[in-house]
Design a protein around this nucleic acid. Structure first.
Lengths: 163, 163
DNA sequence: GTGCGTCACTTGAACTCTCAACCACGCTCT
DNA sequence: AGAGCGTGGTTGAGAGTTCAAGTGACGCAC
């Protein structure tokens, strides 16, 4: 067994920063969303992903991919949002294994009401700290990390590659 | 009320990447730690922070600061780790309000057994995706974001400023 | 057309986290 | 000395998350 390569100063800084962001940023945004409406960041994201899709619906597995979540977690959350009347689950007409989640009109209205406050928070808690160049760097670096973690992740789809 | 400023392409890329990293990276590392020993990333971090401190102990509030966690969350986790014999809580000799968490020898040994696999995972899941320059950029950008979220965050302490 | 493996989900139990309430101590002011 | 306030920490309940197991459906092999 060989001695592991410990982190050097920059690697440690990068790792600690990411670790901290990781707990602080969701907490800050969760907080804003929770006081604005009783919604978590994850709830918001689920609805946002649906709202951006053709017909405002997606199969559960696709929705799970777009929220980077497990099917199990998504299933529980969709059940909750369905109870609030913001979503509806329907069986897929062609493939009976598939369930599709549909954003209801009420859900869409809720999302639209929450959206301005949310993007504002994303700006003040995060983007406003950075220059345009840094935002671009972060996007590039972030996507490289995502690619490492999940090479087929949806955010990497059609970023300048396509038949 | 004015129209909110929605995100432009780069802002959106940066935000989505960070959001994805945020769920994928902890999951990946949690996974590694959980199969290596029954430990979460947060558990590991708590013990790592103690191991790096003078005397291997810290007051609960300082430990909470160094793990970016709430006192409440920390309290629950420390109770759990204490039950496993890896930590010990003692009253502070001078200030009876303060509890200090001490890393036990068994805890230290556990940590040392886990460390190589963990740093290896940090490398393969994250750092190896980046060039030296990108690691440096990420450290810089990450610290700016942390500063925006919590201006007194401990990782910003004594980074080239001091009497 | 009958198995048999895989896929798409769902469920319940165990665990974790958050939130609000609480307690005990120390500090300051009078 | 005692009142009142802020600090440091714990606790219990409720919400959320994970994990392992289970349920149908599809689809391919023979």
């Amino acid at each position: 067994m060989t001695e592991p390569r410990w982190l050097n100063a920059d690697e440690r800084r990068a790792w600690l920063a990411l670790l901290s962001i990781n707990t602080l940023l969701p907490a800050a945004l969760d907080n804003q969303l929770h006081t604005a409406g009783k919604v978590s960041l994850f709830d918001y994201n689920v609805m946002a992903m649906l709202s951006e899709s053709e017909g405002r619906f997606l199969p559960m597995s696709e929705l799970a991919a777009r929220t980077s979540s497990s099917l199990s977690r998504l299933s529980h959350v969709v059940a909750k949002l369905e109870k609030r009347g913001w979503l509806e689950r329907r069986p897929h007409p062609r493939d009976a294994r598939v369930t599709t989640a549909h954003l209801s009109d009420v859900g869409m209205a809720t999302l639209e009401a929450l959206a301005p406050g949310h993007v504002e928070a994303v700006r003040t808690k995060f983007l406003d700290a950075l220059t345009e160049r840094e935002v671009n760097d972060l996007a590039r670096i972030g996507e490289k990390i995502v690619a490492r973690l999940d090479n087929d992740h949806w955010i990497l789809r059609d970023t300048e590659r396509r038949p």
